[in-house]
Design a protein around this nucleic acid. Structure first.
Lengths: 350, 350
DNA sequence: CTGTTAGCGCCTTCAG
DNA sequence: CTGAAGGCGCTAACAG
């Protein structure tokens, strides 16, 4: 059996308290006693149990990130990686560990219930859902990222509707009228009640509003919406399907994530489709890789790192009883090489 | 104050035991009682405290990953991401959370001391070091990844020396004699005693052995070794420096990580240096992006995902008291488009 | 300066 | 079927 503080105390002929002081606040006991205690600690190789300690200190030294997909899937999404990196910066600063909390067997609510962390961040999880309720019941400080703003929950995000509008408007302005939209696929692995597609919906709304200006809408012929997972492979797969379908090909593919856009680009390379010559491709997020692709990606920039670090800071603020309020970051259109006017304005161009 | 099991018990007029049963083992009490208890639980919004529960169950439901760099830096390394994804697969399967443990203020040993997890994996951490000692004292099941094999520690890795040999031999075979090596930079942010560069050393040894066959060594003129961080940016920076230096340029850059190689590729694009025409570039790891680059990367394949998942499985095996032994995965050379013979075999070619 | 005494919140024998 | 009692390992008042 592993030695406990009690063993040390007995062996050293002092009380548990004294041992505790020797370890955490040496100034409060005599040097002599401290030395003796510490030698026993070393001899027995005693290490205090972090969990037991937590029971009284109420601090585990970890912050949690709850997301609606398995870990291996989350990390295949570069945008999420950026978010996590941002959170990591705060962890570094505060000396905290970061616990990734994927949906458990019992679902996301179960994960929230079991999470052993000091504060929690959620991505793609709605408020007013079981998760938020549970977290509140646990008195767990939490912040949503890309969630909905409500007065009972602090959120970090961007104006997705406006950002989407920017992107669609750009494409429309170039003359595109046959556009395939690769939308974020709602997570199917979690409880339907916890499913949450606010970002997707808002972006679609933004696209719709831009289309309206051109006399189109999401249902118009030529405009299509397909759901894909936010990874390179997901985008590549969708692009292959779209470009292989019969009928007139789209002149542009507009993805709701750079990862999917990058996958599209890759599929085009393989298929020998020239970008932006034959097909324009645009993404969303402006991940670091977006600059490096061939051609570099036109996309909507949003500050992933900062979103992560702000969310983490806010959660810690709540934990410490400080004020915390929503943050809405600006997003902007970044035009790079992957979009251009459609080569031959077809007859369907008005 | 948050309700505890005691509050529920009192309110329901039963003992804490009964409440506990209602929650964890309903079959043991009457339906009637159970119903009553549960209604109070719902009414008060009671959620058992995971930490308190851990104290007796000895299971936190999390596995830890200890690494020697800050989280934001770790996640900028695609190889580490792959490793983590592999661990994530096991977490998914077993219903576990994954806690990332960066070095704390007190250093890596402090992180190991404080880690609130059921089992631990380490990357780039040596055995026989303070970390391993501490973990053993804590009776914490742990597995090292890319560490040293010893009979007291189970490790998951590849034969780095042989793998490196393969790569250097390939370059030498193509005729390269002026080669810049981008070596893994030992982590400087942690305690010197915990610093560990076995992988780096072994790969250098492999390179050296290959060079010897060509009558060269790591000190030969034309051969240079620089240390870089394992990220795209790190590689790009190094490449810019190398290609800008006066004197004859190398005909090949050999990186110890694909990330650095990709960065090199990117820098070459920017500088207008043709790959592999003017410069051959090779990496290490065979990360998913390696196929997608322009040109696709020649590299040494090693199974990052599998290393992660095996390490996790082994750690859990130890936790459950099952047998666990080292795993050494095979590595292989993957020749793609980024390497070729040097265009003009200079006079220094023997 | 040091020890005693209570908890922290939960689970789990062991009786009844 | 249910309750009482004890313990998990540690910290924190509060006395001496």
């Amino acid at each position: 059996m592993r030695p406990t503080i009690k063993d040390i105390a007995e062996r050293a002929g002092v009380s548990k308290t004294t041992v505790s002081f020797a370890l955490n606040d040496p100034g409060r006991i005599s040097e002599e006693t401290c030395r003796r205690v510490m030698s026993i600690v070393a001899e027995l190789g005693y290490v205090p149990d972090p969990v037991a300690r937590t029971l009284t200190t109420k601090r585990l030294g970890a912050i949690g990130l709850l997301f609606p997909q398995p870990i291996h899937e989350a990390l295949s999404n570069p945008y999420l990686c950026e978010l996590i990196r941002g959170i990591g910066e705060v962890c570094e600063e505060k000396g905290l560990a970061l616990t990734m909390l994927p949906p458990l067997r019992g679902g996301l609510v179960e994960s929230a219930r079991r999470a052993a962390v000091d504060a929690l961040l959620t991505v793609g999880v709605g408020p007013g859902t079981g998760v938020a309720d549970l977290l509140r019941r646990r008195h767990m400080p939490f912040v949503t990222i890309d969630g909905a703003e409500s007065d009972s929950t602090v959120n970090v995000g961007i104006d997705d509707e406006a950002a989407a509008w920017l992107l669609m408007d750009h494409l429309l302005g170039l003359g595109h009228r046959r556009i395939a939209i690769l939308a974020l696929r709602p997570e199917v692995s979690i409880e339907p009640e916890e499913r949450f597609s606010l970002v997707r919906d808002r972006r679609l709304a933004g696209f719709g509003r831009a289309l309206a200006k051109a006399g189109l809408d999401l249902e118009s012929p030529g405009i299509s919406v397909v759901s894909v997972v936010g990874s390179i492979e997901g985008g590549a797969e969708a692009a292959r399907t779209i470009m292989a379908a019969e009928g007139e090909r789209p002149t542009a593919i507009l993805a709701m994530s750079d990862a999917a856009a990058l996958g599209t680009l890759d599929a085009c390379h393989a298929l020998g489709i020239a970008v932006p010559g034959e097909l324009s491709v645009a993404g969303f997020d402006d991940i670091p890789l977006a600059v490096l692709s061939e051609p570099p990606l036109t996309t909507v920039h949003q500050p992933g790192r900062e979103k992560g670090s702000s969310a983490a800071s806010l959660a810690l603020a709540i934990l410490e009883g400080r004020e915390a309020t929503h943050i809405r970051f600006p997003a902007s259109l970044v035009v790079r090489g992957s979009t251009a006017s459609p080569r031959s304005p077809g007859p369907d161009l008005r």
